[in-house]
Design a protein around this nucleic acid. Structure first.
Lengths: 138, 138
DNA sequence: CAATAAATGCACTTCCATTGCACTTATTTT
DNA sequence: AAAATAAGTGCAATGGAAGTGCATTTATTG
């Protein structure tokens, strides 16, 4: 069992109170969050700090960025073994049109996509939109 | 053979000089264009007019919107028979990281995506990023 | 403890999307 | 055909989110 401190250190990220808080916030969330979500959760902290913290996490592959088509960038913690950079490891994201939340469907890998001759695929973004389990249940 | 005028009228869109020009511009383009692209092509026209024209086209299923992850909304003409609303008819988009252009790969349909129980899929956005045929050729 | 580097906070800028309102142009009604 | 109405266009302004420069604080290193 690795502590958050150890995780950050293993990625060459200095441990600060702010970063621990933001990490915990992301860990506790079951859905992808926007910068504004984080901002609202930490009203005392400056937006820039939150922004740069998330960017740092992103660079060090602690979180991955999600473009779910709402026009607002969202972030979610990478799962253990999540290699977001590796094309073959990409998972898909589900955006609920009802509650407006976006979740990672980590267990659902993106199927092989064929592209025409001459095209070289490097990265794939797949977002399914619809109604999530929470909203469809009722 | 249907004229542009007839097409617009069939969709309950009034024919104006501006709309014809914008339609022709989109038709001649082989790639998805941003609002700024259109703006640059019609410097005499106001940005708002272009914006609203494209929005009108979008509502009436003459163009479809593309979110290729660049953060800037792009638009492309729907092909004949393109039913962007129908999930099963969705095609994928390819964004070139080199020339920054986005093209519709209309002939490449999106494979069936499985989502977990309780999730209802209504729409799918799939963007493949990499190098396009023009840029990989050299 | 001093020197250095990184982290944080504040202010500001930029870019794109969008809207309100006035004005013009087209369409419909009398 | 003129008046009334509706739609289209242009100008100005707003809002939201992303990003940057710089000063200040906090942590790290010698």
């Amino acid at each position: 069992m690795q502590t958050i401190e150890q995780l950050l250190e293993s990625k060459d990220i200095r441990v600060t109170a702010m970063r621990l808080l933001i990490y915990k916030f992301l860990a506790q969330k079951q859905v992808a969050v926007t910068l504004s979500d984080i901002e609202n959760a930490f009203e005392k902290a400056d937006r820039t700090t939150l922004y740069r913290t998330v960017k740092t996490f992103e660079e060090k592959a602690i979180v991955h960025q999600i473009d779910d088509g709402t026009g607002i960038t969202k972030y979610a913690l990478c799962e253990k073994g999540c290699n977001c950079e590796i094309e073959t490891d990409l998972h898909l994201h589900f955006h609920c049109n009802n509650c407006n939340e976006t979740v990672c469907l980590t267990e659902h890998k993106i199927p092989q996509i064929k592209v025409p001759n001459g095209f070289i695929s490097e990265d794939i973004n797949l977002v399914v939109k619809g109604i999530c389990d929470k909203c469809s249940g009722q």
